[in-house]
């Protein structure tokens, strides 16, 4: 790692204030992506602002027809929350599929969403469920939040504090893992709320998470995996790497969407 100055504020306000003053600052949540990147000398923030001592950033709460999850809530806690398992089981299920147990014990939902890795799982849930990303400055709808590979609508010094997920009627998540890294080659989150069906795909898109409108249309007609028989996703705009080419990814989107639909509850 390159040298950096370490900060450990105890409130969001203080964190924002440090970020405002410090040059080239980065926030550290669980560190599951940032620290490996820094170790490989691919990131070199001059200032690192550790959010882990800010008390009120973690927690899961059902508020009316939404579930609100604090940004520093660990994947393990999301996966094992009884409230969440009752309200949006697919989201708990997704959290339990991220990384490995030791990673789930450290990684956070806010960190994942702020990083917006194109192969991360949470972006698919946020987009399909129509989540609202709440920061210290404003509320951002998921539709507007993900802007590209590792890019989001967050501004310099803006800190995610919570994420609010509307409770769907039914939702399911299935992913096909990269056999080496175990990140998603294709992850598909399907969510049905009233007549509205949203399907978000992570891991596959050349510009990050996206909604699979073709699959949404088929599932809107009838929310059943049978509706997806013969639905062929286009390969354009999908990634090709040594593990999966675009055509294979396109095929897997439909397969994972079927399986997510079958799982949905």
């Amino acid at each position: 790692m390159y040298p950096f100055t370490y900060h450990q504020p105890d409130s969001v306000r203080q964190a924002a204030s440090v970020a405002g003053k410090a040059e080239d600052a980065k926030f550290l949540a669980g560190g599951m992506t940032l620290l490996p990147t820094m170790k490989q000398r691919l990131a070199s923030p001059a200032n690192l602002i550790d959010l882990s001592k800010i008390g009120d950033l973690a927690g899961i709460e059902v508020k009316g027809r939404s579930v609100v999850i604090g940004a520093m809530t660990r994947h393990f806690d999301v996966a094992n929350s009884k409230e969440l398992q009752a309200a949006i089981p697919a989201l708990a299920d997704l959290a339990g599929m991220i990384g490995d147990p030791a990673v789930r014990n450290r990684g956070t939902i806010g960190g994942s969403l702020a990083n917006n890795d194109p192969a991360a799982d949470y972006p698919a849930a946020a987009l399909a469920l129509g989540a609202t990303i709440i920061t210290n400055k404003r509320k951002i709808e998921a539709e507007d939040y993900f802007t590209g590979l590792f890019e989001t609508a967050l501004e310099e010094g803006e800190i995610i504090t919570k994420v609010s997920f509307p409770i769907p009627a039914k939702a399911g998540y299935e992913k096909f893992r990269n056999p080496a890294s175990r990140y998603a080659i294709v992850g598909v989150f399907v969510a049905k709320r009233g007549s509205d069906v949203r399907v978000a795909v992570t891991g596959a898109g050349a510009s990050g998470v996206f909604r699979a409108t073709k699959i949404e249309a088929a599932l809107t007609a009838k929310f059943s995996s049978k509706s997806l028989e013969g639905v062929k996703m286009p390969a354009e705009g999908l990634n090709t790497d040594i593990h999966a080419d675009a055509e294979y990814r396109a095929h897997l989107i439909t397969v994972m969407a079927k399986r997510a639909t079958d799982k949905a509850k």
């Binding site: 370490y6 450990q8 550290l28 560190g31 599951m32 620290l35 490996p36 170790k39 550790d50 882990s52 393990f76 490995d100 147990p101 030791a102 990673v103 014990n105 450290r106 890294s181 175990r182």
Partner: peptide, 24 residues
């Protein structure tokens, strides 16, 4: 952060000690 040879318990939960700053 994949091989797990560095796993230790912190506050009762397993973590990868290669992916945590001591100061934190």
């Amino acid at each position: 952060s994949q091989c797990g040879a560095c796993v230790v318990m912190v506050n009762g939960a397993s973590i990868k000690s290669c992916t945590a700053l001591a100061v934190g």
